[in-house]
Structure formats: C-alpha cells, structure tokens
Design a protein around this nucleic acid. Structure first.
Lengths: 216, 216
DNA sequence: GGTTAAATCAAGCGATCGTTATACTCGGCG
DNA sequence: CGCCGAGTATAACGATCGCTTGATTTAACC
C-alpha cells in the first residue's frame, strides 16, 4: 500500500471519527464522510468493507491512543507500589479527558467519538469497544479491587462501569446543557477544566460504603 | 377529537417511545413506527407535525410521569424537615429506575427512551428535555445544595448533572456489557436490582470532598 | 514499452428515507 | 337528505441511503 493510499485511508478515518462523534453512527451518511474527506465513496468500500467496517476501524484507532497511554500510566503507577483509589481514578480520567490537551483538536474528536460509541444503540459496537480496551480496563479493575479490600469484586466492577460511563458522558458534552439555568451554573459558566471535578466525584463513587444487600 | 382518534395518537406515541428508546431517533424510521402502531404514515403528520414533533410529544409524555412522581416524593420528603443527601438521591433514583416496577413493560420503554434522549446527538432534544423537567430538577438541585452547605452551588450542580447522566446510562442498559469478563461480573451476572448500588454510588459522588481549584 | 496490481473515479443500482397531495370514510348538524 | 370537518388510507414525490460496477489512473517490475 503506497503512502498516498495510507493518506486516503487516514483522511477517511479522520472524517468518520469526527462525524460519527458529532452526529452519531446512524446519523452520519457515507456521503457526508466522503465529502469532508474529499474522497470517492468507493474508497470506503475498498479500504474498509462496509459502513460498519469503517466504524470498527475508527473505534480501533481511537481507542488505541488512549489505551496505550493508560497502560503506560498504570505501569508507572505500579512501580511506586500499590496505587490508591484516587491515583487510579486520576490516571483513568486524565487519559480520557486530557486528550484535547495532548492531541489538540483531534483529541476532541477522539474523545467525543468514544463517548458517543458507548451510548449508541446496538450492543455490538459497545461489545467491540469492550473487547478492544478489555486488556487495559481489566488491569485498572484489578488494581481498583486491590485498592478497595472492603468492597466485593462485583461491587467494584459495577462502580467501575459507572465511572467509564460518566467519563464518556463528559467527553461528549452530553451533560453540558442539562441542569436548569439559575442554579449555580452561571458561576462556572466559563468552565475552565472539569477534570479535577470529575476526579473528585468519581473517587467519591468508589469510596462510598457498600449498599445493603437487597433480596432479589 | 374522538376517542378513537386519541387511541390512534396513543398507539403512535407508544410505538415511537419504544422504538426511539431501542434504536435511537435517527435509527428509527417513521415506517417502523407506523408498522408497529398499525397506523398509516399520514396519521403521524396529522397528529404531530413531523418526525421531530413526534419526538417532542413522546419526550413530553415520557417525562410527565416521572416528573409528577418526583414532585410528589420531594414534597413528602420536605414535610419531614430538610431531607439529607441520601434521601434526595434515593428519591431521584427510585423515581427513574423503578419505572419498570411501577408501570410494567411500559415503564421499561419510558426509562430506556429517557436515557437515550440524553445521549442523542443534537443538543436541541436535550435542551427540550431540560426545559421539560427543569422545574422538578431545580427543586432537587436546591434541596441538594441546602443539604451540602460545604459545597459551592456550582459544584453541586456539576455533580447533579453527573447523577442525571449516570441514571440515564443505567436506564438504557448502556453499561451492561462494558467491563471485560472474568472480573467479578459473573458474581452478579444474574443481576437482581441495581437500585441500591446506584443510590450508594451516587450518594458517594455528592459526599466527596471538593476538588482543589485549578487555574484556568 | 508492456504487464500487472493497487488505488481511485464517475455513474448508477434498488431500497428506503421524510414528507406531501389527494381521495375516502363517517358521525354530527342544518 | 346534503353538507362538512375530523380522521384515516392510498400513492407517490424527490432526495438520499448503503452499496456495486466497470472504467481509469498510478506506480512498480520485467
């Protein structure tokens, strides 16, 4: 594959990443992708097999960057002994939320895309997503379980999932225009960086006492 | 409007509510709605003006039921003095998550639809949503702010938004197949009721210490 | 230069999309 | 009875959808 072919492939991936993130999978036509990528429709079917194949490729590439960073950060954390809950949450959140700072505009697209994928209908994409990042996430889950000896593994897993979801929602700005105005929003309207807020809130999730068992 | 006309309208609303919740707005065609509702395509444009008008109507009806319940529960809570954080979170979560128990299968559709709306692209729907439930949510926000005197209003608002998002994600089962297998999932695979887990985790969000200020 | 395979293109396939114009049915009112 | 408006059904509009085909370009190799 020539260098120009790879360039075409990447232009398609870039366009799809942005548009899927902005309008969702079902809401994005292949024509829209080819237009913004300045590419012919057939190239999509040549490089990827179908629209879903394109989605898979985009998801793989998008997750790769944050997966690497998460592995690296966790390695670094573990060399200094068993990491605490807040350290783990911070590492996880920062690798997701700071994509913008680390990768510029592209990072924003990646973040939005990843967030969107988790909310899209059809569990197939979510499962692909889970499989793609399973290795990293498994490590974080294990570390969190070890850092929370008082909590059963199932409970930690539940809260871990919740953390992933919250991060996704914030990455796609789904919560931006949610609360009614005039209730303290104006205070932080010029929102600087929510990362620290997120870390604090998410750490609170893990530190909460265990829920009483409920008979099913 | 005759009684049969109202029946048609409701059949359309029911079908749209379910399908929008399952496949999303962009992923649901009007034909699919008319087929499951056993109605002609034109009736949609007669009763509602367009596809988006249908969405608005569905959103209004879906939110009405939980809004009422939330108002009622908060009233009841306030007559017994200022409610605590966990009480407030519980009231909010239960009214959302227990729709199934209170309304049967219909409740499941409502819950899924509401969850989906918050994750759909296009902020218009989210804003409509926020406007629709703004009154109730404002009350909860106020009560939470009063129950958390140590936290600035903006911080409470941020965490409140997070809570709404988490509840939505759980209502649409978006977090079900997320974590990799073999990490404590099997323990609670036969998931009974997550409501108590949710309440515990979400209460933890509000009880977390304030994040340190970060210079923007 | 001729051959071959990778890569891109224009054009169009059938299907389905949201939407609309039009005709029909039917109960209430004069 | 005739009329009318609310409500439903038929049929189709143009646009766009995901996807395919067949020709054309490009570059590497003998």
């Amino acid at each position: 594959m020539g260098i120009d072919a790879a360039a075409t492939r990447n232009r398609i991936l870039d366009a799809a990443e942005r548009l899927f993130g902005e309008r969702g999978f079902a809401g994005t036509s292949l024509r829209a992708v080819t237009t913004t990528a300045r590419v012919n429709v057939a190239s999509i079917y040549y490089h990827f097999e179908s629209k879903e194949g394109l989605l898979r490729a985009v998801a793989r590439r998008a997750m790769a960057s944050v997966s690497e960073e998460r592995h690296r950060l966790l390695d670094e954390l573990c060399t200094r002994g068993d990491p605490g809950v807040e350290e783990l949450v911070r590492a996880f959140v920062v690798t997701g939320a700071d994509l913008v700072r680390r990768q510029g505009e592209r990072g924003e697209h990646v973040a939005r895309f990843i967030g969107r994928v988790l909310c899209e209908p059809g569990p197939e994409v979510r499962r692909l997503f889970a499989a793609e990042v399973g290795h990293v996430e498994g490590r974080y889950l294990d570390a969190l379980t070890k850092a929370l000896p008082g909590l059963p593994a199932g409970e930690v897993a539940f809260r871990y999932r919740t953390m992933v979801g919250v991060l996704a929602l914030h990455q796609m700005d789904a919560l931006a225009d949610l609360a009614p105005p005039g209730h303290g929003d104006d205070i932080w309207a010029g929102r600087g960086d929510d990362t620290e807020r997120l870390i604090a809130a998410l750490t609170g999730i893990f530190l909460a006492p265990q829920a009483p068992a409920v008979p099913s």
